[in-house]
Design a binder for these strands. Structure first.
Length: 578
DNA sequence: CGTGTCTGCCCC
DNA sequence: ATTCTGC
DNA sequence: GCAGAATGGGCAGACACG
């Protein structure tokens, strides 16, 4: 298969925003892959080279892509960055400059999809001295034999940002349409196992989704779909192989929460830790993060607790790990346990200094049986039955079941007093939906504070925000000086009514005093209100603090730079919360 | 050897 | 993480 | 209502360079 054929599909997908149309385009292409037995290419369709649970990484991003482009084209860094500033897409920059090159040099090499896949797959294998040089060589080898369009998609694939709009749902539906024929209404005589009518079309879609939920690997699902329905159905959840976690959208009130998840609901604490999927298969115990990274080594205590305090031969648990101070037993902010997640050295020392408590809130597999479709209330019962509760080690999450808004609010107050982030509300009858926000559950967090701050720097955006100044460095005040307290770039509107990026860009441009690359310095004049969830210590900003989850809610034309929050006020807030 | 820069479908 | 937007 | 895109802070590790 020629890489250009694949790029043609990318282009078509990019040009058509309708999901039905995308499905049609993809299904046609998948049929070709099916015929050529080239199912691995399905990874490239989502801009990947490995399944989601793979640990492999390119180790390539913006800076190195720019370097590779410089190497392959001879164009200067400066010009590339300038073009990037203007059009907001390094892929498109590559298209321009590699395309331009090709007009002069007659090139006859045809890039195959396999060649691209091969070179990309080599990237994660390289390590040690000279790695970067060798990676750049592999990339520029591809770029030099690529057309403009091909260069664009090679770069976007490296950046992990294909931007053609092929999410899981589209891939799933395309596999369905590529592997199962739709029966025409006139032709009812043609009955075969692989023929869909509108009734079983839905079921087939579900079967494919289910196979993916259990394997987290589109190549495998595609291969099985090619064999037929029964092959798909044979996919089983396997403890030891990671599964995507269920996600929960935010809701503002318990009334809204109940109307979403039904009554009664289970309400449990939302801990400020990190997601941990614990897998046990006989004596093998593995721990995965939300993005399916294996962190078993980083958290040796998990093995111990699981062996000692949980009954069962095999299981998959969904949990939240929170750090605490071993002496005072006080819970510690996320910032601190985050030190343990990617650690390779001093693991045991950190485990002693910053132990974790595992709060188990769901179970999706138990003793050789998938519980994905078992109602949540049953799953919760199993959790309570099999876990021997040991606070500061492992325990079921703190929870109540209620249909009363008042009881819910009291429970929430208790959660906040205990220093937790808020609560979750969950539908008692719901199945577990891996990787989905359709999560039959929601989260509720406290209302937030804000500061009025002044913009002192801004950066040009990328993708759909290209051409606008769309990210702003904001500052508080100390005497007559302005001290950075973070960056903010969300809350503004792209198109609809309200404060838009366009408007802010227009107001900032006359204030520009200096430009370097994609950032500009501006006179401290524009004041905005910034809402945040927390204040953290910052090693990066001159105020020594940074805002956690900042967003802009409004412009304050009535305020001057001298009116913004002072460092003293920021410090007071930090103390008030601790 | 220390420091700076870059990267991560990172974690939140 | 949060937010906005197109479907 | 959902998925996807574009962004936030901070962390450890890996490599380049002086």
């Amino acid at each position: 298969m020629q890489y250009s054929q694949l790029c043609k599909v990318y282009e078509e997908l990019e040009q058509n925003s309708s999901r039905l149309k995308k499905t049609e385009i993809l299904a046609d292409f998948l049929k070709k892959l099916k015929k050529e037995k080239d199912q691995e290419i399905i990874y490239l369709l989502q801009g990947k080279t490995f399944p989601d649970y793979s640990e492999k990484e390119f180790g390539i991003s913006e800076k190195l892509c720019i370097k590779a482009l410089t190497k392959a084209s001879g164009t200067s860094d400066k010009e590339i960055i300038e073009r990037w500033r203007k059009i907001g897409d390094i892929g498109k920059v590559a298209e321009q400059i590699m395309g331009r090159k090709k007009q002069n040099t007659l090139f006859s090499h045809k890039l195959t999809a396999k060649k691209v896949l091969d070179n990309l797959k080599k990237l994660p294998e390289l390590e040690g001295k000279g790695t970067i040089e060798r990676k750049l060589a592999l990339i520029s080898e591809l770029l030099t034999s690529a057309s403009g369009t091909e260069a664009k998609y090679i770069i976007r694939t490296l950046l992990g940002d294909l931007r053609v709009g092929t999410g899981e749902g589209t891939i799933r539906d395309s596999i369905r349409d590529a592997c199962f024929e739709t029966s025409s209404e006139e032709d009812t005589s043609k009955k075969s196992l692989n023929v869909m009518d509108s009734e079983n079309k839905k079921q087939i879609t579900e079967t494919i989704q289910d196979a993916y939920d259990k394997s987290t690997d589109w190549k495998l699902v595609f291969e099985q779909a090619c064999k037929g329905l029964s092959a798909l159905k044979s996919t089983e959840l396997t403890p030891g192989k990671p599964v995507k976690v269920m996600l929960f959208p935010k809701e503002d009130s318990f009334e809204d929460g109940f109307s979403r998840v039904g009554k009664p609901a289970l309400i449990d604490y939302k801990y400020d830790g990190f997601r941990m999927m614990i897998n046990k298969n006989n004596n093998q115990i593995k721990v995965f993060t939300r993005r399916l990274d294996d962190v078993s080594k980083q958290f040796p205590e998990v093995k111990e607790y699981v062996k000692k305090y949980i009954k069962g031969e095999s299981f998959i648990l969904d949990t939240e790990a929170v750090g605490y101070d071993p002496e005072t037993k006080k819970y510690r902010p996320f910032q601190e346990i985050s030190q343990r997640i990617k650690r390779k050295y001093d693991i045991d020392k950190m485990a002693r200094e910053l132990p974790i408590e595992i709060n188990v809130f769901d179970i999706i597999y138990y003793n050789n049986k998938s519980l994905i479709k078992t109602p949540f209330k049953e799953r919760r019962k199993i959790i309570e039955k099999i876990i021997e509760k040991h606070p500061y080690k492992i325990r079921p999450s703190e929870a109540i079941i209620t249909e009363s808004v008042e009881k819910a609010e009291n429970f929430y107050k208790k959660a906040i007093e205990d220093g937790e982030e808020g609560v979750m509300m969950k539908n008692l009858e719901a199945p577990y939906k891996p990787g989905s926000r359709v999560g039959y559950g929601i989260k509720i967090k406290p209302s937030e504070n804000d500061f009025d701050l002044v913009i002192i720097e801004a950066e040009y955006g990328t993708g759909k925000r290209a051409g606008w100044l769309s990210s702003y460095t904001v500052a508080c005040r100390k005497d007559n000086k302005f001290l950075e307290i973070g960056k903010v770039s969300t809350g503004l509107k792209e198109k609809t009514e309200g404060l838009t990026f366009k408007e802010l860009t227009k107001k900032l441009k006359p204030l520009i005093t200096k430009e370097h690359g994609r950032t500009v310095e501006v006179k401290p004049k524009l004041v905005v209100t910034v809402v945040y969830q927390n204040i953290q210590k910052s090693p990066k900003y001159s105020s020594g603090f940074a805002l956690r989850f900042p967003r802009i809610t409004r412009l304050r034309p009535d305020r001057k730079a001298g009116d913004v929050a002072t460092l003293e006020e920021v410090k007071k807030e930090v103390e008030r919360k601790s």
